[in-house]
Simulated scan of single mutants.
Amino acid sequence: MKTTIAIVDDHDLVAQAFSGLIQRYEEYEVIYEVSNGKELINRINLKMVPDIVLLDIVMPEMDGYETALWLKKNHPEVKVVVLSMHNEEESVIKMLRNGACAYLLKGCKPRELKQAFDEIVRKGRYYNEFVTEKLVKSLNPETPPNPQYTLGLLDLEVEFIKWSCSDLTYSEIAEKMFVSPRTIDGYRESVFQKMKVKSRVLMAMKAIWLKLVKYDGGDYCS
């Protein structure tokens, strides 16, 4: 008995092209093509329930996100294979959370589409290298390094840098920080060395560029 497939894509030529491709697979049969999620639901309500839905994301009336979620809640036995031009991590993760068991790009090779169907029939899902990379990235998001720790700056040195972004003199900064001018001189020498700068102006510019401090236009950097 053949595995039945429904294609949901608002681009008729794309839907017909994939339908023609799938019809060449002996184990699979396209039972209908519709242009959005609402049309798919109408067919399913008429007892035309496919084994697999080949689903686009961007469609009128009811998009792929909503359609996948509806299938997950009402027909979890139907396997959803996303076929989209969108390669953003957000799209992949959202579709997988909404119940998709595979995510393919429309530029994929025909053999990968067949492989995805075969894996889904055998194992219930198909995660290619593209999807795996997105999943790993979502679990381990890249966080920008903290410039304070990268440069080895002490908390008091960071506070000194923030005050140095203002128009206060070093003596006035010493008063603000409740330390002696000599201590401020020590902070300055240490910070200049760690940041590899030779002037207060360059120090302030580099601190703002590194987002170590944020200049708000007042007399103090936050």
Results as ranks from 00 to 15, higher is better:
Pro110Gly: 09
Pro110Leu: 15
Pro110Met: 05
Arg111Gly: 04
Glu112Trp: 13
Leu113Lys: 01
Leu113Ser: 06
Lys114Arg: 14
Lys114Ile: 14
Lys114Met: 04
Lys114Pro: 00
Gln115Glu: 03
Ala116Asn: 02
Phe117Ala: 14
Asp118Lys: 15
Asp118Gln: 15
Asp118Ala: 15
Glu119Thr: 03
Val121Asn: 12
Val121Asp: 12
Val121Glu: 14
Arg122Gln: 05
Lys123Asp: 04
Gly124Trp: 15
Gly124Val: 09
Arg125Leu: 00
Tyr126Ser: 04
Tyr127Ser: 04
Tyr127Arg: 14
Asn128Glu: 07
Asn128Arg: 13
Glu129Cys: 00
Phe130Ala: 04
Val131Pro: 06
Val131Trp: 04
Glu133Pro: 00
Lys134Arg: 07
Lys137Ala: 10
Lys137Val: 05
Ser138Trp: 14
Asn140Lys: 13
Asn140Leu: 15
Asn140Phe: 15
Asn140Val: 13
Pro141Lys: 07
Glu142Met: 14
Glu142Cys: 13
Glu142Tyr: 06
Thr143Gln: 06
Pro145Ala: 02
Asn146Cys: 07
Asn146Val: 11
Asn146Leu: 09
Asn146Arg: 11
Pro147Arg: 13
Tyr149Asn: 13
Thr150Arg: 02
Thr150Leu: 10
Leu151Glu: 00
Gly152Val: 15
Gly152Glu: 02
Leu153Glu: 01
Leu153Thr: 03
Leu153Cys: 01
Leu153Phe: 10
Leu154Gly: 09
Asp155Glu: 06
Asp155Asn: 06
Leu156Pro: 06
Leu156Ala: 12
Glu157Gln: 13
Glu157Phe: 14
Phe160Ala: 08
Phe160Gly: 10
Ile161Gly: 03
Ile161Trp: 12
Lys162Val: 00
Lys162Cys: 00
Ser164Gly: 00
Ser166Ile: 10
Ser166Tyr: 11
Ser166His: 06
Asp167Met: 05
Asp167Arg: 15
Asp167Ile: 14
Thr169Arg: 13
Ser171Phe: 13
Glu172Asp: 08
Ile173Asn: 08
Ile173Asp: 03
Glu175Asp: 07
Lys176Phe: 09
Met177Tyr: 06
Met177Gln: 07
Met177Gly: 04
Phe178Tyr: 08
Phe178Trp: 12
Phe178Ile: 11
Val179Ser: 08
Val179Gly: 08
Val179Pro: 09
Ser180Phe: 15
Pro181His: 14
Pro181Lys: 10
Pro181Asp: 04
Pro181Leu: 06
Arg182Thr: 02
Ile184Glu: 03
Asp185Lys: 03
Gly186Ala: 15
Tyr187Arg: 03
Tyr187Gly: 07
Tyr187Val: 05
Arg188Ser: 05
Glu189Cys: 11
Glu189His: 07
Gln193Thr: 11
Lys194Gly: 02
Val197Glu: 12
Lys198Ile: 00
Lys198Leu: 08
Lys198Ser: 11
Ser199Phe: 08
Arg200Asp: 07
Arg200Thr: 09
Leu202Arg: 13
Met203Ile: 08
Met203Asn: 01
Met203His: 08
Ala204Ser: 12
Lys206Asn: 04
Lys206Met: 01
Ala207His: 15
Ile208Asp: 09
Trp209Lys: 10
Trp209Ala: 05
Leu210Gln: 09
Lys211Met: 00
Lys211Gly: 01
Leu212His: 08
Leu212Met: 02
Val213Trp: 10
Val213Lys: 15
Lys214Thr: 05
Lys214Trp: 15
Tyr215Gly: 01
Tyr215Pro: 05
